[in-house]
Design a protein around this nucleic acid. Sequence first.
DNA 1: ACCAAACCTATGATATATCATTTAAATAAA
DNA 2: TTTATTTAAATGATATATCATAGGTTTGGT
Lengths: 145, 145
Amino acid sequence: MLNDIIFYVLDKTIKRYRQYAQGQIDRAGISITVDQWLVLSVIQESPELGQTEIAERVFKDQASVARIIDLLVKKELLVQSTSRQDRRRVDRSITPQGHALLQDVAPIIARNRSTALQGLSEPAIEQLRQTLETIYANCQTTTEG
Amino acid sequence: MLNDIIFYVLDKTIKRYRQYAQGQIDRAGISITVDQWLVLSVIQESPELGQTEIAERVFKDQASVARIIDLLVKKELLVQSTSRQDRRRVDRSITPQGHALLQDVAPIIARNRSTALQGLSEPAIEQLRQTLETIYANCQTTTEG
DNA sequence: ACCAAACCTATGATATATCATTTAAATAAA
DNA sequence: TTTATTTAAATGATATATCATAGGTTTGGT
């Protein structure tokens, strides 16, 4: 059975958590995806980062981040302008609406996380983290061909 | 830091494993995605399942499964025909190429899994499974509005 | 037989993932 | 300075995720 394969359990768990988290945001009547929120909050914390650096932080692709940022701009949560110092780069700043949204979403995310971890002790979570990090390290993708 | 949040560790781990697994298939010169392979192998095991049932097994959406099946048909790994008994349904059968591909991919997948789990004891994996199942259960999405 | 409900697949719309490439700009090298 | 390399962002192509819905088909109720 697929459930015997730990990677399917991993897969189904993360999918379920995402659905749950998105559902809680939707239910609050806030129009943003978890991925958009994540990118927006990274920009809030570190507005100086470029797309590639944002992508690294959130484990996404540069192209994905570019498109998510597009949507954030369209939603007027973020404004962009070409950097004066380096015209390849883009200066970003979060709009008042963007800040307001981040504030509205923050408690929902916090609640989601604690709900998802109910019944798990600190050591259990630490154990989870370490096991995942081991798997992560095992799947090192070699740089050479 | 994002790494302090267990859900990001979860996310990055599953993404890394997927990349690794896909890379190993690509490197073997086999032209199929992990998702396509997964759907194909479920059909091999249980050819009588409908799209919705396949979707449940692989934690995907019915629509996603429909499109993956489309691609499998285009790749001539699978053939479909309307069922005589119930004309809403579709009979599926894996082509010889499909069977051959499944055979080629099987050892790669097996190798990927054991590589990813290197250094983890059976109890550690069992612990991982149980922790994930707890999170999964905690994120029960209520059926009512 | 008739209508309503349930069912299965297909598809449109949008968001995200990934790879590869393009464009423009900055920087290093010659 | 001119050229080559590197870097940042944008974009095309394809695959997958998700929601909603459309089109047929079967089934259940009357």
